[in-house]
C-alpha cells in the first residue's frame, strides 16, 4: 500500500513535464524512503535518475517497495488535469495494477480522482558509480537553457570546457561557429551566481539535442549543477527543493 500526498502538486507536474520527452515507459520504485526512477533511452545515450524523498511529502506511507510501471505519455495526460495549486495524492495497492491520482483544489471545493493502468515492465538498470568529476559548475538553470537554445541554431554538438573564470560552450556547424562564455561570479550563495571548481581542466563534447531536452527541467530549480571530466558521461542535476533531484547523465561524443 502506498499513499503519498504533496500539497504543492505543481512540483510533480514539473517533474513529469521534464521527463515525458525523454522517457517513454519507466518503473517508478515506491519505497519506504521515497520515490525513485531510473531510465535510459533505447540507444543508451542518456540516463535519468529521479529521487523524491518521503520526508518531502506532506504525507507518505509505503510499507514495502512497489515497482510501478508507467507509460509516461498516459501519466502526462492525466497530470495535466491537475491545476497548479492543487494538492496531489498518489495511491497504489500492493498488486501494482493501477495508480490512483487525486487532485484537490486548495479550498477543497473540487476533488478529481483518476485511475492510471500500470504496466509490467522489464527495465534495464545500471549501477551508477560514485564518480568524482574534474569540473563542477553551478549556474542559473535559465542560462543553461539559453545556451542550449542559442547554440542549437548553429550545430549539433557542443564542446564544453572551463577555466577558473568561466565555463565555455562552443559549437560548429555548416553556417559557421559560435561560443558562449558564462563567467563565474563573486561569492555565490546567491541563486543567480555562477561557481566553478576545477581539479584539472576538461574539454568534452556532447549532443546538443539531449542537453536541450534536459533543460525541460528548468522550471524545477533556479540553479543547475554540471559535473564533467574528460571522456566521461556528464552529470546535469536539478535539485527539487529539499526533497530530492532529477539527475541526467549524458554519454560524451569522442573523436573518431
Amino acid at each position: 500500500m502506498l499513499e503519498a500526498r504533496l500539497a504543492q502538486g505543481n512540483v510533480l507536474k514539473k517533474v513529469i513535464d521534464s521527463l515525458r520527452d525523454l522517457v517513454n515507459e519507466a518503473n517508478f520504485e515506491f519505497t519506504p524512503s521515497g520515490i525513485t526512477l531510473q531510465s535510459m533511452d533505447s540507444a543508451h545515450v542518456i540516463l535519468v535518475s529521479l529521487l523524491l524523498r518521503a520526508d518531502g511529502f506532506d504525507n507518505y506511507r509505503c510499507d514495502r517497495t512497489i515497482p510501478v510501471g508507467i507509460n509516461m505519455a498516459s501519466l502526462s495526460k492525466i497530470i495535466r488535469a491537475a491545476a497548479n495549486d492543487d494538492a496531489i495524492t498518489l495511491r497504489a495497492d500492493d498488486n501494482g495494477e493501477s495508480l490512483n491520482l487525486i487532485f484537490e483544489a486548495p479550498n477543497a471545493g473540487r476533488v478529481s480522482d483518476y485511475e492510471l493502468k500500470l504496466m509490467d515492465l522489464d527495465v534495464e538498470q545500471v549501477a551508477l558509480p560514485d564518480m568524482s568529476y574534474d569540473v563542477t559548475v553551478r549556474m542559473p538553470s535559465e542560462e543553461l537553457q539559453r545556451v542550449c537554445r542559442d547554440l542549437s541554431a548553429v550545430g549539433e554538438s557542443v564542446t564544453i570546457n572551463a577555466t577558473k573564470e568561466s565555463i565555455n560552450f562552443g559549437v560548429k556547424g555548416e553556417l559557421g561557429s559560435g561560443s558562449i562564455a558564462i563567467r563565474s561570479t563573486a561569492p555565490v550563495d546567491k541563486k543567480e551566481g555562477v561557481s566553478i571548481s576545477m581539479r584539472q581542466p576538461a574539454d568534452v563534447s556532447f549532443s546538443l539535442k539531449f542537453l536541450t531536452q534536459f533543460t525541460k527541467a528548468t522550471p524545477l530549480s533556479e540553479t543547475v549543477r554540471l559535473e564533467f571530466s574528460n571522456e566521461c558521461p556528464m552529470l546535469v542535476e536539478y535539485p527539487i527543493g529539499d526533497m530530492g533531484y532529477i539527475r541526467f547523465y549524458l554519454a560524451p561524443k569522442v573523436d573518431d
Binding site: 545515450v45 545500471v126 549501477a127 558509480p129 547523465y249 561524443k253 573518431d256
Partner: peptide, 14 residues
C-alpha cells in the same frame, strides 16, 4: 568528426 558513445561503456549492468 565525433562519435556518440554509449553509457553502457561507462556504467556496468548490475
Amino acid at each position: 568528426s565525433k562519435r556518440q558513445t554509449s553509457l553502457l561503456s561507462f556504467f556496468p549492468s548490475p
